[in-house]
Nucleic acid binder design. Structure first.
Lengths: 105, 105
DNA sequence: CAGCAGGTACGACGGATCTCGTACCTGCGG
DNA sequence: CCGCAGGTACGAGATCCGTCGTACCTGCTG
C-alpha cells in the first residue's frame, strides 16, 4: 500500500518535505503536542484550537499528512489525526524528540 | 558576545529558523557536506559549486549564518564557512546526524 | 426534518522567498 | 598598476506559502 489518500509510505517520506512542514510554527505546535502525548493518541483537527480559520487548519493538516508526519482517518463525522511516530523515528531518529523539546510559547 | 556580524549566540538559535534554513535543498546540501567533513573543516562559499549565481549563493549562506548553522570568518580575500557543530548539537541533539544521513542526489 | 458542528474545496490576496543581473568592494598575482 | 576571483548590496521578477471567505458535504442531535 504505497499511498492511501495522500499518506506517503514510510520509505516515501522525504526529509525536505518533513522539514518544510515543521518550519511552520502552527504545524510544529501540532506535532509537538502529539509527540508529548501518549503513544497512539488521536485528536481532531479542531481540538488544537489553532488561532486561524477552519480553512487554514485544513491546509496545515494537509501539509502534515502529505509530508508523512500524521495519519488522518475518518471516524464518522470528524477526522482523527495520529502522529506517525514509529515511521518518523525510523526514517529520522531523534527528530521528534527535538520538536517535542521545543519551548512552547 | 551575543551577536557578531549576524551570527546568533548559541542560546539565540531558534528551531524555527534552523528548520526553515534546512528546508531548502541547496542549503541542506551545504550543511550535509560540512557535517560529513572532519570537525573544524572550513570551506569557501564557492567551493560547493552550487548550481546558482553568485548572488544567490550569498543569499543562501546568509540564511545559514543568520539561522546559526554556520559561522563565517573573513580570511583576507575570501570568507571561510565552518559548521557550528557543537552549538547545534547542544541545542538540537541529533539534528545534524539526520541531515548528514540524507541521500545525496 | 432542521440545524449545527467538523472538514473539505476553491479562489483570492499579500507577504515571503528564490532567483537573477548589475554594480561595487577587496586582496592577490602578474 | 591592472586585472581577476571571491563576495556583498541592491533592486527586480516569478513563484510559493499562509491566510481568509464562501460554498458545500456529512453525520449527529434535538
Amino acid at each position: 500500500m504505497p499511498d492511501d489518500e495522500g499518506h506517503p509510505a514510510v520509505e516515501e517520506i522525504e526529509l525536505g518535505a518533513v522539514l518544510a512542514a515543521l518550519a511552520d510554527p502552527l504545524r510544529r505546535r501540532v506535532v509537538r503536542e502529539l509527540a508529548r502525548a501518549p503513544e497512539g493518541t488521536a485528536r481532531t483537527c479542531s481540538s488544537f484550537a489553532l488561532p486561524v480559520s477552519k480553512a487554514t487548519v485544513t491546509h496545515h493538516f494537509r501539509a502534515l499528512r502529505e509530508a508523512g508526519l500524521i495519519r488522518q482517518v475518518d471516524r464518522g463525522n470528524s477526522r482523527m489525526a495520529r502522529l506517525r511516530r514509529a515511521d518518523i523515528e525510523r526514517r529520522f531518529p531523534g527528530l521528534l524528540a527535538i520538536v517535542a523539546a521545543e519551548d512552547a510559547d
